[in-house]
């Protein structure tokens, strides 16, 4: 299984999912024209990954901004990770010090998703 990597654009985030270390990163903006089309390959990749995950999967989410359909796709990504049994999974939700919206979004995901979500402030 290969790593999943996509470079950041003005409308889509950087996606770096390393299968050998279990270190995942999503950063930047997520406002694609068609969110499901953008995230579908990643969801399919995750379907494979969860069959044989690393002992520890650490997912860093450093989003500046995301649209509503991207938030649904994020839910789908987290739901895939929820299925991992017998291995540790942690989500680190990063937000800028003065970005209350992103902080509140992280709190909302925390309530919904059955994986530890650690809130981390990026100091300006």
């Amino acid at each position: 299984m290969e790593n999943f990597f996509l470079e950041e654009t003005s409308k889509t985030p950087k996606l770096s999912f390393d299968v050998s270390t279990g270190k995942f990163l999503m950063s930047g903006r997520s406002i694609p024209e068609n969110s499901i089309e953008f995230y579908k390959p990643l969801l399919e990749w995750l379907d494979e990954y969860i069959k044989k995950p690393c002992a520890k999967t650490e997912f860093d989410v450093k989003l500046e901004y995301f649209n509503t359909s991207s938030s649904k796709c994020l839910v789908e990504i987290f739901r895939r990770l929820e299925k991992i049994k017998g291995a540790e999974v942690v989500i680190n939700w990063f937000y800028e010090e003065d970005d209350e919206d992103m902080q509140e979004s992280g709190e909302d995901f925390k309530e919904l998703i059955d994986i530890p979500i650690i809130m981390s402030v990026i100091e300006n």
Partner: peptide, 17 residues
Amino acid sequence: LGEVKLLTSVSDRLQNK
């Protein structure tokens, strides 16, 4: 229902932005 609540609050925050 949980997801709808999340999407609604995300959407409201986007509108505020």
